Amino acid sequence: MRNQTVLISGASIAGPALAFWLNHYGFEVTVVERAAALRPGGQAIDFKGATHRTVLERMGIWDEIQAHRTGTTDTVFVDENGERVGFMSGDFTGGDVEILRGDLAEIMYKRTLGDCEYVFGDSISALTETTAGVHVEFENGAPRTFDLVFGADGIHSRVRRLTFGPEAEFVKHLGHYYCVAGASPWSAEQTGPRERATAYGFNAPGRLAISGGAKAQQLYMFAAPELSYDRNDVTAQRRLLAQQYAGLGWEVPRMLAEMVDFDDFFLDSVSQVTMREIGYTRGRVALVGDSAYGNTLGGFGTGLAVVGAYVIAGELALAAGDHAAAFARYDEIMRRYAKIAGNANAGKFLAPRTARGIKLRNWFLGSRMFALMSKFGDNAATDIDLRDYPALVEGR
């Protein structure tokens, strides 16, 4: 019996993680990525609890993640005069281990590059399921047919749109936008340990600006209805951000002036994918990661991506390639586990719309209830019984 061919759309985190497991179970894997190359840097992402660690150890990358981990960053919230009004521990935001998104993507990419085909600078334009598999048309490359197709292409997934329908039906705008600008302070090579750092955040009603100081990575979050803008026009996005923060005090004018020259700039909505009720698979197509169960800055996205990749590949191996049976089990398992991403609203928490809301948030950060919420999040991250899937294909 020939090895099944699979196409994965997206080479950030979920895509290479899925490529790793599918390759090890004997599938012939192709990954297509719209960007011209791996995207370096980016915001820090984290893992927490025994479930995440178990999957990463089974991938053989836990030690490498430890070697590339960022330092812990505490956030001190200040008023317009720079006086402290609240504190959020980096132990809450950073989980058990924190790593830059670009560093993790590179680790996974290198683990799969020798055995998997990567196609950069291209994307899927059409999908048609046939008796022979899934006929795939690309923006640039020649059409090809694959046995299975996986969408690991983020909240704005094209695979989801082509398979399930318009984005508006499955992505809920949560009332805020966020922007990460500038290189992380942990991006440069360091010879010593990455120590604890402090960032400073300033709130105005419906606005948040965080910076670690001059030339440090910046995080913005602002309340707004759904905005119409070109996601490929970074210059226009910079202007939009400057307009949203015009007239604010503290260090915001300095931050905006520096932001103009930063090469690293990413702006997007705070949104939630709502696929749990209908499931994450249809026919020979399945969604993994943020395309299936994303919730922007909700704290569980990366862990869900690597666990979801482990589960769907393992179920395919257990079912000897019977995708219908494997996809049904994947839907069942991940519907339950992905519920942890359904309640968080980072925008509402980090950028409250009123002065009273900001004061309540700052009080909550120092309360016992915040500690209980953190513990609940840690427990939710492990709320899944990982199956021991078949042994890896010999020699892979």
Rank of each mutant, 00 (worst) to 15 (best):
residue 328 A to T: 15
residue 338 A to H: 11
residue 76 V to Q: 00
residue 82 G to K: 01
residue 198 T to N: 12
residue 365 L to Y: 02
residue 185 P to I: 13
residue 266 F to V: 10
residue 165 G to N: 05
residue 60 G to E: 06
residue 199 A to N: 02
residue 51 T to M: 07
residue 177 Y to A: 03
residue 91 D to K: 08
residue 368 R to P: 02
residue 103 D to S: 15
residue 20 F to S: 02
residue 262 F to N: 12
residue 384 I to H: 11
residue 369 M to V: 06
residue 255 M to Y: 07
residue 320 A to K: 15
residue 344 A to V: 14
residue 323 H to A: 14
residue 255 M to W: 12
residue 255 M to K: 01
residue 202 F to H: 14
residue 92 F to S: 00
residue 1 M to V: 10
residue 87 F to G: 00
residue 229 Y to R: 13
residue 39 R to C: 12
residue 278 I to E: 12
residue 67 A to R: 02
residue 219 L to D: 00
residue 128 T to F: 02
residue 351 A to R: 06
residue 220 Y to K: 01
residue 181 A to K: 05
residue 53 R to T: 09
residue 162 L to P: 02
residue 183 A to S: 13
residue 317 A to V: 06
residue 171 V to A: 03
residue 253 P to M: 10
residue 156 H to L: 00
residue 73 T to Y: 01
residue 379 N to K: 13
residue 129 E to L: 03
residue 28 E to C: 01
residue 127 L to S: 04
residue 234 V to Q: 14
residue 242 A to M: 07
residue 104 L to K: 12
residue 9 S to L: 00
residue 196 R to H: 14
residue 388 D to Q: 13
residue 229 Y to I: 04
residue 166 P to K: 04
residue 310 Y to S: 03
residue 70 T to K: 00
residue 272 Q to E: 12
residue 56 L to W: 07
residue 53 R to I: 11
residue 128 T to Y: 01
residue 357 G to P: 08
residue 210 I to P: 03
residue 321 G to I: 03
residue 354 T to N: 09
residue 308 G to S: 08
residue 221 M to P: 04
residue 152 A to H: 08
residue 298 G to W: 06
residue 246 A to T: 11
residue 77 F to D: 00
residue 291 S to C: 09
residue 304 L to V: 13
residue 113 L to Y: 10
residue 321 G to C: 09
residue 294 G to N: 05
residue 355 A to C: 05
residue 322 D to P: 15
residue 39 R to M: 02
residue 267 L to N: 07
residue 13 I to R: 01
residue 58 R to M: 06
residue 5 T to C: 09
residue 108 M to W: 10
residue 244 Q to H: 15
residue 9 S to E: 05
residue 62 W to R: 02
residue 211 S to R: 02
residue 24 H to Y: 13
residue 270 V to K: 07
residue 298 G to A: 12
residue 126 A to R: 09
residue 309 A to C: 07
residue 293 Y to C: 08
residue 255 M to V: 14
residue 85 V to Q: 06
residue 64 E to G: 05
residue 188 A to S: 03
residue 258 E to V: 01
residue 266 F to K: 12
residue 264 D to A: 15
residue 320 A to V: 03
residue 347 G to F: 11
residue 144 R to Q: 15
residue 10 G to S: 15
residue 387 R to H: 10
residue 12 S to T: 13
residue 299 G to I: 11
residue 16 P to M: 09
residue 245 Y to E: 09
residue 7 L to C: 03
residue 150 F to P: 07
residue 297 L to Q: 05
residue 7 L to D: 09
residue 57 E to N: 02
residue 312 I to P: 08
residue 160 R to I: 00
residue 87 F to Y: 00
residue 143 P to W: 08
residue 329 R to D: 07
residue 288 V to W: 10
residue 93 T to M: 03
residue 148 L to I: 12
residue 12 S to W: 11
residue 295 N to G: 13
residue 97 V to D: 15
residue 71 G to F: 06
residue 104 L to I: 10
residue 94 G to E: 05
residue 155 I to L: 14
residue 32 V to G: 00
residue 318 L to V: 05
residue 32 V to D: 12
residue 308 G to Y: 05
residue 119 V to H: 05
